[in-house]
Amino acid sequence: MRVANIQVSETPVVLYALRRADDALILGHRLSEWCGHAPMLEEDMALSNIALDLIGQARELYTYAAKVEGKDNDEDRFAYLRDVRQYRNLLLVEQPNGDFAQTMVRQLFYSAFADLYWRAMMTSRDATLAAIAAKSEKESAYHLRHASEWIIRLGDGTDESRARAQGAIDHLWAFTGEMFAVDEGERALIHADIAIDPGSLRGRWLTTLSAVIREATLDLPQTDWMQQGGRSGRHSEHLGHLLAELQSMQRTFPGQTW
């Protein structure tokens, strides 16, 4: 790693946009790891489509963060030249793909939230965030539908698919709390009607999720102990490996294009 990390002036709006951009980039990258490896050709395409939607969202959010920050940074520098501790994504989205059930449960947890989140953000007083929300909402709605249909079939499928789906739910559940957490900087943005309070979405998120899980004949865990840290740069060991792959080219050949 020859190239130094960039410095980011994390003002509240910059940090807010970076956190959502990092969610989208990291989850998009995870899904792209399935390309050529999915259980069937049709799903290979479906996962790549979702990945591309997410990376598109990330690009718009990074570009906006760069504009608000007003320094030399841009979408590429944010993606390629920050190390693990500078990444602000949810721990949920950096979790490894695991098996197909794990990938789909992760997607269901995130998309059920993102669908509600972007729909609510369409009323943001920040015109750029509202516009990004309007585009992202339709994409997220489809991601939610796709993941829901798979979970229903995995849960209500064979003994093995059912056991894997339930195992994935139990494993990933502790990473869901972070989606609804708010720190002081974000609290100020919520008061200014630039951001929405994610805590207000948790009831509907749970309703959506419960309906899918019930139809899948699966169970949601009763525990409410939750992992946190991603939003402030304290990540699981998995993110470093992901970034090594994501960033190796730009770190080795700075500014390289093709």
Binding site: M40, L41, E42, E43, M45, A46, N49, Y142, R145, H146, E149, R153
Partner: peptide, 14 residues
Amino acid sequence: HASDATMALQAARD
């Protein structure tokens, strides 16, 4: 290829 009509419709879209 798809397991049922709903999944076929989604795969067709994708």
